[in-house]
Amino acid sequence: MVGGLIAIIIVVSSIGAGWLGAAAEAGKTQVLVWSGDPLSGDDTFLVSVLGGAVFAMASHGSDQLVVQRLLACRSKAEAQKAIIVSGVIVTVQFGVFLLVGLALWGWYGAAAPAELGLTRDDEIFPLFIVEEMPTGLSGPLLAGILAAAMSTLSSSLSALSSSTVTDVVAKARRTPLSDAEGLRIGRWATICWGLAFIAPATIFRSDEGDIVVLALGVAGITYGGSLGAFVLGIVNGRARSADANIAFVLAVAVNAFFFVMEKYVIGEVWVAWQWYPLLGVLVTLAVGGALSLRHRGAQSSEAAGDLRS
């Protein structure tokens, strides 16, 4: 955040703030987009508000990455406050870096990335940091970017290893895990999940598009199934864990089909990435609900609690 503010200050002190008015005249400051395809246009109002809301619900309501942080709060009220404050901070953060983008647009004279010898939009800010920032500022800013990336990666590995130990290994064993055993298994799980991260990352070789949109699209593939399984356990008294697991796999498969087809086969967007979580939720509820009809009556409170967990 400090680095983004410093970049804005450098641009304003060097070329003034006239770029903001020019950006407004060029339509760069438009916040709401009412036109466009509501199914495939990822910048339209309906997609952003409805699809984005479900996306946020999945990322902050069912993703272990965030849930493990909420569980660190001392009470439900503190967890609720944390979610609300997170929303405010993220809004400010996005606003700052959108302003950084406008400032860089003005700094480089509205030049396209290709005119600057770049292959993608994401390279503009690093170019500015390396070539334009004063000595003594570029290094700490790059270090901050790397630190932010490392913190996200470590949190993801921690969440996955924790889930592996508590939800897989501990439940599969007849005897309880000791702290030492849990720590040892958790370390190996972290290594294995790290290798699992590397494997699919080698698939993405294209320089086209924005890395943020790509990352959110990949996350949306599983978010829908995750949130859908969570909702299924709350609203469907018949559903069992097996029903949720099968529905989750099918929901992920459906979203993965759209992602692969759109990006690598036809090269045309059918469904905007914001719709992936909602699509996954609908598939999970439909499939899980259909499978739950096999069972008679509502399941016990103990079984329902197990499914929700």
Rank of each mutant, 00 (worst) to 15 (best):
C192D: 06
C192G: 09
G194C: 05
L195T: 12
A196S: 11
A196C: 09
A196W: 11
F197H: 09
F197K: 08
I198D: 08
A199Y: 13
A199T: 14
P200W: 15
P200E: 13
A201C: 11
T202E: 10
I203F: 11
I203T: 09
F204E: 08
F204C: 07
F204K: 06
F204W: 12
F204L: 09
R205N: 10
R205S: 10
S206K: 03
D207I: 10
I211T: 12
I211D: 14
V212Y: 15
V212W: 15
V213L: 12
V213H: 10
A215R: 10
L216A: 12
G217P: 02
A219Y: 07
I221D: 05
T222N: 08
Y223S: 08
G224T: 01
G224F: 00
G225M: 01
G225D: 02
S226C: 13
S226Y: 13
L227K: 00
G228D: 01
G228W: 03
G228Q: 02
G228M: 03
A229P: 04
A229C: 05
A229S: 12
V231W: 04
I234E: 05
N236V: 03
G237Q: 04
A239W: 00
A239I: 00
A239K: 00
R240W: 04
S241A: 12
S241D: 14
A242I: 12
A242F: 09
A242V: 14
A242K: 11
A242W: 07
D243H: 06
A244I: 13
A244W: 07
A244V: 11
